[in-house]
Write a protein that binds this DNA or RNA. Structure first.
Length: 462
RNA sequence: UCCCCGGUAGCUCAGCUGGCAGAGCAAGCGGCUGUUAACCGCUGGGUCGUAGGUUCGAGUCCUACCCGGGGAGCCA
């Protein structure tokens, strides 16, 4: 049952001829008295393969009952198509109806709203749009591993369950095996976490960065690519409670090296997807976002601009534009500011560096000016920030001072501080939300439609 | 969490200043010899999100709640 060729393979053949077998699900069926056309998709590519059934088939009457959603295996000669719209088709000599479809199959041969498709997440991968999204997602994931592996980065499997709260920010999901109705309690009445599964409080990870820093202190260049979790009650088209993050970390590396890698990384992933998913990208350009392909190609072809935060503030102030939110040194950029810089001022991706320390995390390397840190954000046209990264503070005394200023309890970070005691090196890394990357590549408006099974506040179906 | 918009057939929607519940697609049945989201004909299909209220009469007006979408904040 596994010997068949994919639709992708059959359609990419040089020439017709030979008996082939195609297996998949019927996208649309057109029946007339003397001939039936079944368009079969197996998910291997955007296009389906047309199967032509004639009355000579032993089960022609049954084939006439095949409709959208049926699973079939069709064998026959691969021939040049007489009709328009496809190069090859299969002139069937046998069609096995493997899985029938009940009358209430919800997918139709027409456009559905994405809201509706989310309610049938078990069937929506069979649609044009979600199918193309998930192929692009897979190709992008492959390209990400390819980029780092080719450069000798070690893949680190950072833990999903952690006891530390990276950055001290973001709401955490609690991991516990205690009975919520009757947890063990200490003498003062609070929940006794020492009797929980791990003997302490535990949470789902919000970032693999700190663990990646551990690994970079042994393997030099490492990356993580895994799920992360945020229990924020934010209900937007750009947030998920469960999402995937890419986080490289490099020892003996400063912010300039970090930016070099980030730029090469984005160019590699976009170029790979454009090359390997041309039909899917053409569909996005046609139906979702007209500029989808040219936007990615532009980023591949264009060197990124680099500008310090302080200079970027001056550019915004001199622009003469009236922004909804104020521009002032010390304030973080709003989306409108980021988009102005990337879309209108530079008309290309721009990396903004050296942000005020007050708006960035405690672990970022402090500049000598006493005001800024070695942080960088990659801003791209249309969406703004795509990557956020920094050179890390590797000087123990400075790091301890910053943690004190941030009023962080240093006890849970004893191992993180140890790294600064034993062979500390300048190092840097960045983070990228994988779903936002897929959103950017495809032009999909809602992040819930670029992950197979979205988890958001109030919804974890499927 | 805050602001705005919405919820009518399986899906996408129309339904006017309150007065008999509608269309297209899908489904079922029939027709059609090369279709391209095929086409043509017929048929079935409704707790108008939920609960109250106003009214002779509510899909329509009012209140609360639930769900969905867009935006904001926060972020990736």
């Amino acid at each position: 049952m596994r010997s068949g060729e994919t639709v992708r393979g059959l359609l990419s053949r040089e020439r017709e001829g030979g008996r082939v077998e195609v297996r998949g699900w019927v996208r649309t069926a057109r029946h007339s008295k003397g001939v039936s056309f079944l368009e079969v998709s197996d998910g291997s590519c955007f296009a389906g393969l047309q199967v032509v059934a004639a009355p000579e088939l032993a089960n022609f009457e049954a084939v006439r009952g095949v409709k959208t959603g049926c699973a079939i295996v069709a064998g026959g000669e691969l021939v040049r198509s007489q009709g328009k719209g496809q190069s090859f088709e299969v002139q069937a000599d046998a069609i096995e109806i493997v899985g029938e479809v009940e009358d209430d199959y919800p997918l139709q041969k027409k456009r559905h709203s994405f809201e509706f498709l989310r309610t049938i997440a078990h069937l929506r991968p069979r649609t044009n749009t979600i199918g193309a999204v998930l192929r692009v997602r897979s190709a992008a994931a492959h390209a990400i591993h390819e980029f780092f592996q080719e450069r000798g980065f070690l893949l680190l499997h950072s833990p999903i369950i952690t006891a530390s709260d990276a950055e001290g920010a973001g709401e955490l999901f609690r991991v516990t095996t205690l009975d919520p109705s009757e947890p063990p309690r200490t003498e003062d009445g609070s929940v006794d976490s020492t009797r929980d599964f791990f003997g302490r409080e535990a949470f789902l990870t919000v970032s693999g960065q700190l663990e990646a820093e551990i690994a970079a202190s042994a393997f030099t260049d490492v990356y993580t690519f895994g799920p992360t979790f945020r229990a924020e009650n934010s209900n937007t088209s750009r947030h998920l409670a469960e999402f995937w993050m890419v986080e490289p970390e490099m020892a003996f590396c400063d912010l300039e090296g970090d930016m070099d890698v980030a730029e090469a990384f984005l160019k590699h992933v976009f170029a790979a997807v454009l090359e390997r998913c041309p039909d899917d990208m053409a569909f996005f350009a046609q139906r979702i976002d007209k500029t989808a392909i040219e936007t990615l190609q532009h980023i591949v072809d264009t060197p990124f601009e680099r500008v310090a935060y302080t200079e970027a503030v001056e550019i915004l102030e001199r622009s003469g534009r009236s922004f909804e939110f104020p521009v002032e040194w010390g304030l973080d950029f709003q989306s409108e500011h980021e988009r102005f810089l990337a879309e209108e001022h530079y008309e290309r991706p721009v990396v903004v560096t050296d942000y005020p320390a007050s708006i960035k995390a405690f672990y970022m390397y402090a500049n000598d000016d006493g005001k800024t840190v070695r942080a960088m954000d990659v801003l791209v046209p249309k969406v703004g920030e795509l990557i956020g990264g920094s050179q890390r503070e590797h000087r123990l005394d400075v790091l301890e001072r910053r943690m004190a200023e941030a009023e962080l309890d240093t006890d849970p970070y004893w191992w993180y501080l140890d790294l600064r005691r034993y062979g500390s090196t300048p190092h840097a890394g960045f983070g990228l939300g994988f779903e936002r990357l897929v959103q950017f590549m495809t032009g999909m408006a809602n992040i819930r439609d670029v992950i197979p099974f979205p988890r958001v506040p109030g919804a974890a179906e499927f």
